[in-house]
Design a protein around this nucleic acid. Structure first.
Lengths: 182, 182
DNA sequence: TCGCACATGTAATGAGTTACATGATTCC
DNA sequence: GGAATCATGTAACTCATTACATGTGCGA
C-alpha cells in the first residue's frame, strides 16, 4: 500500500474554513497547527497546483485593490467531499521517533551529567512552549466557543497536556539521576 | 546541512551493551525502544554493513555449536567513541505529525460523533499500551536498578507518563464534545 | 538604499517504508 | 507436512527537507 500524502488534506481543511493563498495557509498553520502538523516552505505550492488540476480547489488571481501576484485558492464541492471522506477514516498512529529518549536510553555510556543536561535543555524548551499555549487559552471560556473554535481549542489542550506531562517526566528523571550522581 | 542518519547510533548503542546479530538487535528494539524508536525490517542490515566498512563494528560468523547463517556484530573502540560523541551532542526535537489531532482540528466539517469515535478508538489503543508498560514496571524497585537498567526505566516511565496524559486528554475532549452533541 | 516580510515556485537529496526475495530451523 | 520464527538482504517508491531561484512592496 502506497504511503498517502496527507498534506493535501491539511490544505483542503484550511481552505474549507475560508479561501486563502498558499502563503496565508502557511502562516495560519504556523499559528494554529504548528505543534502537531507543519509543512515545509516549499511542499505546499506543488500540492495546491495538484489539487487545482484535480478540481478540488479553484484559483483566483489577486484582490482587485492591489496588483500583488497573489493566488487565492478556494475549495470546491468535490474538495469538500474528499475532505469529509478523509475525516471519516480512522487516523493512523505513527510511532514517532524521539531522539532525546534514545540518548537517555544509552545514557550509561556517558557521564550522568550529560544526560541531566539534555533533559534540562528539553525542559527549558517545553516551558517556553507552554507559555505560548497559555497566552492562547488564558481568556477562553469553554462553553462560549463556536463549534469551529471548540475543535481548535481541543488540539491546543492536547498541546498543553502533553507539555505538562513532559515537564513532569523531566523533573522525575532529573531527580532520579541526581540521586545516583552524588 | 545534510540530514543525519540516526539509525547508526541506535545500532551502535545496542552493540555497546553486547554483541548481537542484526535480527537480535531488531528483536531487542521491539522489546525496549519500540515506543520511541523503531526501525523498519530492512533498514538495519545495510547500515550494519556500512558500520563494518567504516570499522565501527566487527563481524564474526555464527556460534560454533550450530551452523546457522548468523552474523554476530560487536562494537569496536572507534564505534564506542563515535557513539559517545553523538550522545554528548544536543538532541534535535522533531515536531512530530499527529493525524488524529489534524482530524480533530477540522472536525467541524463532519458530525461530532465521528470525532468522538476517533478519540475513543485512540483511547483504547493507549489503554492497551499502558497495560504493556505496567507489566514491565510493576516489580521494579527504583533504587535497586543498575545504571543501565535505570536509563531504560526512565524511557519506560516517559512512555507511561505520555500515555496517561493521552488518556486524560481523551476523557476531557470526549466530555466537551458530548456536551455539544446532546 | 538596504533589509524585511510578502509571495511563489524548482531541484536535489536522502531518509523511511513497503514489497520483494531467499532459505534454514523448529514446533505442532 | 505445513506454519511460524529465525535470519539476511535488494529494489522501488514516496515523502520531507534543504537549498536554490525570483520578484514585489514597504518602512527606516
Amino acid at each position: 500500500m502506497a504511503k498517502e500524502n496527507k498534506t493535501r488534506y491539511a490544505l483542503l481543511g484550511f481552505l474549507s474554513s475560508q479561501p486563502a493563498s498558499g502563503y496565508e495557509i502557511k502562516k495560519k498553520m504556523e499559528q494554529s497547527t504548528n505543534h502537531f502538523w507543519r509543512e515545509g516552505d516549499s511542499s505546499i505550492y506543488p500540492i495546491l497546483k495538484q489539487l487545482l488540476d484535480e478540481g478540488m480547489v479553484t484559483c483566483a488571481l489577486g484582490n482587485k485593490e492591489s496588483d500583488k501576484p497573489k493566488k487565492v485558492y478556494a475549495i470546491t464541492h468535490d474538495g469538500q467531499l474528499e475532505l469529509q471522506e478523509w475525516l471519516k477514516e480512522n487516523p493512523v498512529y505513527y510511532p514517532h521517533r524521539n531522539e532525546l529518549l534514545l540518548k537517555i536510553f544509552f545514557g550509561w555510556n556517558v557521564k550522568t551529567a550529560i544526560s541531566i543536561n539534555h533533559i534540562e535543555n528539553f525542559r527549558h524548551i517545553v516551558k517556553s512552549v507552554i507559555n505560548d499555549y497559555q497566552a492562547k487559552t488564558h481568556n477562553v471560556v469553554e462553553n462560549k466557543l463556536t463549534q469551529k473554535q471548540l475543535y481548535q481549542y481541543l488540539t491546543l489542550k492536547a498541546g498543553i497536556i502533553y507539555s505538562e506531562a513532559s515537564i513532569r517526566w523531566c523533573d522525575d528523571a532529573i531527580k532520579l539521576l541526581k540521586k545516583r550522581v552524588k
